[in-house]
């Protein structure tokens, strides 16, 4: 862009800003698209701009909403539905849509128009038309189904099962390790006693090991019996 023109822009802007002696109203572009879950609410802002030098009084309303047979039309509310907009300022009107709670309405789409009129009283003694002005905002409402509870439930159960399995594995592994350790300790102890020829004390805590001990002592006895036979 030409630099000289760029320098002139603020000047043009100031001339423009003050040349609008009468009220100019505007709105921020873009439709209001409501995607509401069945039985829930959603709110969006509708911004109205007063570009004039005087305060404006507005009245906002739902002008039109499409009618779909065998459905419950969503409720549309506007807040605040009337009020003042200061000069060179804007207001945000909160538009809230309450979705119906009927599964037949899932996937349905409504369209409508909101309007905000600027109210000014003109008195004129003739057959005349008073031209008012305002803004109109198109909107759409789509009803979506609530998120299924089954999927999160399945995930929850699976998570519980996995945690339970991990806990079981930890406990089982610890128990196994303890058993092995006890058995190894007993065997070492036993071998040591054998080496030192100390009489075996009862070791009742591990049955398998006790049997093993009995087996070993039996073989010792049979060995001594065989030796006595050989002597004879």
């Amino acid at each position: 862009m030409n630099k000289d023109f760029a320098k002139l822009i603020p000047l043009i802007f100031i001339i423009f800003a003050f040349s609008i002696s009468n009220a100019q109203i505007g709105e921020i572009a873009g439709p209001l698209n409501f995607n509401v879950t069945l039985g829930h609410k959603e709110s969006l802002n509708w911004t109205i701009i007063n570009q004039g030098n005087s305060t404006l009084y507005y009245v906002a309303s739902l002008d039109y909403i499409s009618n779909i047979t065998n459905t419950t039309t969503p409720a549309v509310s506007i807040y605040p539905s009337n009020g003042y907009i200061s000069p060179r300022s804007y207001i945000n009107i909160r538009v809230t849509v309450q979705a119906p709670n009927d599964y037949r309405d899932v996937g349905k789409e409504w369209e409508g128009i909101l309007i905000a009129k600027i109210i000014n009283n003109v008195t004129y003694n003739a057959t005349y038309v008073s031209i008012g002005y305002g803004v109109a905002k198109q909107f759409s409402i789509t009803i979506s189904k609530p998120q299924s509870l089954i999927a999160p439930l399945v995930v929850l159960i699976a998570a519980i099962l996995i945690i339970a399995y991990i806990a079981y594995m930890i406990v089982h592994h610890a128990h196994k390790r303890r058993e092995t350790y006890e058995e190894e300790r007993y065997l070492k102890k036993h071998e040591l006693r054998n080496m030192l020829n100390i009489k075996e004390p009862g070791y009742s805590s591990i049955k398998v090991s006790k049997r093993a001990v009995k087996g070993k002592s039996k073989s010792k006895r049979s060995r001594s019996r065989k030796a006595s036979k050989r002597k004879r």
Partner: peptide, 19 residues
């Protein structure tokens, strides 16, 4: 910078006189 449309109208009355 938002997308914005403004409206300014002139005049704000029309007279059809006597008919």
């Amino acid at each position: 910078v938002n997308g914005v449309c403004y409206l300014y109208i002139y005049p704000n009355t029309i007279s059809f006189n006597s008919l």
